[in-house]
Design a protein around this nucleic acid. Structure first.
Lengths: 218, 218
DNA sequence: GTCTATAATTAGATAGAC
DNA sequence: GTCTATCTAATTATAGAC
């Protein structure tokens, strides 16, 4: 394998690009399927079809459906950590009193941009199996601790609602995300797409006001 | 069929009781399966096994998997309407200022008692198919309008948070329910069962405080 | 990297015996 | 009301030709 990389020809480069393109298409299709339909209800055949690749390529590139799920989940979590990590850095530059408020706004914006994240967490958070264990270990637990830390800092400053951090975490997560993860239902009820920028902005304002005691920071 | 009912013997009565018992076991097992695993991932075979009835009885009693889903969803929605309907009646006897607060508490208590409801809504709210259409028509739309009414009455009295009723509905629903619908995840994170009475009480207090402007009514 | 064939399993639904 | 046999279709996975 190392030798193959050294004697790279244009032919090999082309093949490598094709392989990476195929894998990317599969991971994206898998993410959509696993997060909206669930793991067991998503067949590898349907994922291949939706990805626009030939049948059998999931087993060729990933070896199994389970490995494809892990690759898709890892892809999603890496992107989430990157985006929310930079948001956290930005928030830490701010005045202490305003951190929770802008953290909540950034979190709502991210959830609207990537509803797959919360859909996947909802799908896998109901039953205790290998996928939930994987997600907890890989990302949920570190994220949970970071959110609790921001909340507890705000609580000491008196700008957070009065409650236990665990209840804060689930109240905030649910309030911030349900309208996006259940976008089909929300759209049917209101006639408006909750993922439209105006609706996202309105929801971010509503949730940030709700979960912080200061109404108009700055 | 009408004649058969008229010439009821003890033998027939016994058979009818067996049929009703079988159907009840099937509906309960179906509710658990459809709400936690999703419709497509729940096989009729597994539901029959979990219900402890013989194979083939789903098709015998209901004719199809689709009809079983509708029977299970109707069972759940009837119970929900009954329980939350009486809670609404109780709340309407109260002082106007306190209605929203105690409505939220009653809603949280119900969601903890029947996490299947929100699990089913989450499963079916992501994609727009015949099951979401059925749920919207059957119960979600009337419930949505009742919640908005209570919220708007509280808003006129100045005891509701400042936001659009549609965003209130989804923020409240998400905040109230996620900790129960994702109980497996919440338990793994905190080490405590969120469905325990103490945890339910704490969450009800937290959410009711959050979504009403008056802190200690009465 | 692509395509085909096929194995082994499981799905929902139907018909008929008891 | 219960049970069994069976049908058709779809599933994951493997091996091998190109």
């Amino acid at each position: 394998m190392q030798n193959a990389a050294q004697i790279t020809t244009t032919h090999c480069e082309h093949k490598l690009r094709d392989a990476d393109a195929t894998k990317l298409k599969l991971v994206n299709a898998a993410l959509l399927a696993f997060s909206t339909r669930g793991y067991d209800a998503s067949s590898t055949r349907s994922i291949e079809t939706e990805a626009g690749v030939k049948r059998g390529l999931i087993n060729y590139h990933y070896g199994s459906k389970e490995a494809l799920w892990k690759a898709a989940a890892d892809h999603l979590m890496s992107m989430t950590e990157r985006d929310l990590g930079t948001a956290l850095e930005t928030v830490k530059q701010m005045d202490e009193d305003a951190r929770l408020y802008f953290f909540v706004r950034a979190y709502v914006a991210f959830c609207a941009k990537h509803p797959e994240l919360n859909r996947l967490m909802i799908q896998e958070g109901m039953a205790h199996d290998w996928r939930l264990a994987w997600l907890l270990e890989r990302s949920v637990r570190p994220w949970y601790e970071q959110v609790c830390r921001i909340f507890n800092q705000a609580a000491e400053l008196g700008v957070a609602p009065k409650m236990d951090d665990h209840h804060f975490y689930y109240a905030l997560t649910g309030a911030a995300t349900l309208i996006f993860s259940n976008a089909a239902e929300a759209r049917a009820l209101s006639g408006k797409n909750p993922l439209d920028p105006d609706a996202v902005e309105a929801h971010a304002n509503a949730v940030a006001d709700l979960f912080t005691s200061i109404r108009n920071p700055i």
